[in-house]
Structures are given as C-alpha cells and as structure tokens.
Amino acid sequence: MDIAIIAAVITAVALVLVCLLLVMLRYLYRHKGTYHTNEAKGTEFAESADAALQSDPTLQDANDNSRKEYFI
C-alpha cells in the first residue's frame, strides 16, 4: 500500500471522529438538564393546598369536600 493512501484513510477517520465529537457536544449543550413541569399556574400564592386545588380547572369534576386525601 502506498503511504499516501494510508495517510488519507487516517485523516478521513480523524475528521469523522472530530465531527462526531462536535455533534455530541452540541447536543449535550442544548439539552443540559432543562425540564418542564405540569403544575397549575397561579397556585404558588394560595394560602393552602386545598385552595390551590379548588381553583385548578382540571380538577373541578373531582372536587369532593367530604373526603380529603393527603399524601406525604
């Protein structure tokens, strides 16, 4: 084998590895631990957990004041 062919193959492999490293670093930088919560908006100012849950529109059907469950 000619030395030029070997050098070209090594250069091509090194270039592919550098490109792969750059793509991985970009992905890790853009997804650095951000998360989204599904908490109800405006409940951080409620005086109690009951008041916060009563004003939540997704829980209006299940609003029964006779039985309350608290999970600690």
Rank of each mutant, 00 (worst) to 15 (best):
M1K: 10
M1F: 12
D2R: 13
D2Y: 12
I3R: 06
I3Q: 09
A4D: 03
A4S: 00
A4R: 00
I5K: 08
I5D: 08
I5W: 07
I6K: 08
A7V: 06
A7N: 08
A7T: 04
A8G: 01
A8H: 01
A8I: 02
V9D: 03
I10R: 09
T11A: 15
T11G: 15
T11M: 04
A12N: 04
A12G: 04
A12L: 04
A12S: 04
V13I: 15
L15E: 07
V16R: 05
V16A: 11
L17E: 09
C19H: 04
C19P: 01
C19A: 15
L20P: 01
L21D: 12
L21A: 14
L21W: 13
V23K: 05
V23W: 07
V23R: 09
V23N: 06
V23M: 09
M24G: 04
L25D: 01
R26E: 08
R26H: 10
R26C: 06
Y27G: 01
Y27M: 00
L28Q: 05
L28E: 04
Y29Q: 07
R30I: 12
R30A: 08
H31Q: 02
H31N: 03
G33F: 00
G33V: 02
T34H: 10
Y35K: 00
H36E: 12
T37L: 06
T37H: 07
N38H: 14
N38W: 14
N38A: 15
E39Q: 03
E39I: 05
A40S: 10
A40C: 12
A40R: 03
K41N: 11
E44K: 14
E44T: 14
E44I: 13
F45R: 10
A46K: 01
A46H: 03
E47L: 03
E47P: 05
E47C: 03
S48E: 00
A49D: 07
A49G: 07
D50W: 10
A51D: 14
A51N: 11
A51R: 11
A51T: 13
A52F: 03
L53P: 00
L53R: 07
L53T: 12
Q54H: 07
S55Q: 08
S55H: 06
D56M: 03
D56N: 06
D56Q: 03
D56H: 02
P57R: 04
P57F: 02
P57D: 00
L59I: 05
L59Y: 09
L59S: 05
Q60G: 09
Q60S: 13
D61V: 04
D61Q: 03
D61S: 07
A62K: 12
N63M: 13
D64L: 01
D64V: 01
D64A: 00
D64N: 05
S66K: 11
S66R: 11
R67F: 02
K68S: 06
K68N: 08
E69K: 09
Y70S: 10
Y70D: 08
F71H: 07
F71S: 04
F71I: 10
